[in-house]
């Protein structure tokens, strides 16, 4: 019976959540690859370095962007991440793509025309730059979150000196995000089973009241969790795992990609 109720909830879900899975596990794609096996903090450093090289490249050196994209594609292949999955997840950047698409049409300065349309050169370049760099940024983040569980990413950030309290807040968030969204979903089902359908601003009061109830439940849960932790000896610091040293070899492996990107960038500068 309980099973059945669960099934109904799943079929009615509007939030697009898979129930019973950790938010990190949901994004994580379990594969065996070099990318997956690298320690998280090494991966984060490599991702940022790659990103910095990409962002500091001018879009006029378009050959470099082709090279960067091939490096990303290579990483996706090595990490055994389906291109389709990466493409679907990168749809998140659509609002800014729309913004960038408008740029060649509304601008100032030098104009040129392709067929019947007049375009602004500066606007076109800036638009291409935003889309190109934004897409690479999104793909890097996708590779990171697909090849690393959320918990590991957090552990990596902790190693990179993210303050303890922030790490703890984030771990609580990862731990309870499903509990809280499920609670919200149950409230939605409860509203729907009483014939409620939100269609306009006149229904905001009910939705806002639900948000308030969600806050109260979250806060009370926070208190309960805190008391439970205190009774188990919590004193503001969470227990730590053994810290393993990362060898130079692993760092070299991880930093190959940003290094290649940087090398190409520098060669281009010298060559010009």
């Amino acid at each position: 019976m309980v099973r059945n109720i669960n099934k109904i909830e799943i079929s009615h879900t509007e939030l697009g959540h898979h129930h019973g899975h950790d938010v990190g596990e949901r994004l994580y794609l379990h594969r065996h690859s070099i990318v997956h096996s690298l320690p998280p903090h090494v991966k984060i450093v490599a991702a940022f370095m790659f990103l910095f090289v990409v962002i500091s490249t001018s879009i006029t050196q378009w050959q470099l962007f082709i090279f960067y994209f091939s490096l990303i594609l290579l990483t996706l292949t090595v990490a055994k991440i389906p291109i389709k999955l990466a493409a679907t997840r990168s749809l998140i950047e659509i609002p800014f793509v729309l913004f960038a698409v408008l740029m060649p049409f509304f601008g100032t300065g030098e104009q040129f025309s392709i067929g019947p349309v007049d375009l602004y050169r500066a606007g076109l370049l800036a638009g291409l730059s935003i889309v190109g760099k934004g897409t690479i940024g999104v793909l890097i983040a996708i590779i990171l979150s697909t090849s690393t569980t959320a918990r590991e990413i957090l552990r990596g950030l902790e190693k990179l000196k993210l303050p303890q309290l922030m790490v703890q807040i984030a771990s609580f968030m990862l731990r309870y995000v499903n509990v809280v969204t499920d609670e919200m979903e149950r409230m939605r089902v409860a509203r729907a089973s009483r014939g409620f359908e939100a269609t306009g601003i006149k229904h905001w009061k009910i939705l806002a009241t639900a948000a308030a109830a969600l806050f109260i439940r979250s806060y009370e849960r926070g208190e309960r969790v805190h008391l439970a932790m205190l009774s188990r000896g919590y004193d503001g610091v969470l227990p730590h795992e053994e810290v393993t040293k990362v060898s130079v070899k692993i760092w070299i492996k991880a930093l190959t990609l940003p290094f290649l990107a940087l090398l190409a960038h520098l060669l281009m500068i010298v060559w010009k």
């Binding site: 807040i169 609580f172 809280v180 979250s218 926070g222």
Partner: peptide, 8 residues
């Protein structure tokens, strides 16, 4: 930590 975590 737990309260700010649940707020987040």
């Amino acid at each position: 930590a737990p309260l700010a975590g649940l707020t987040a």
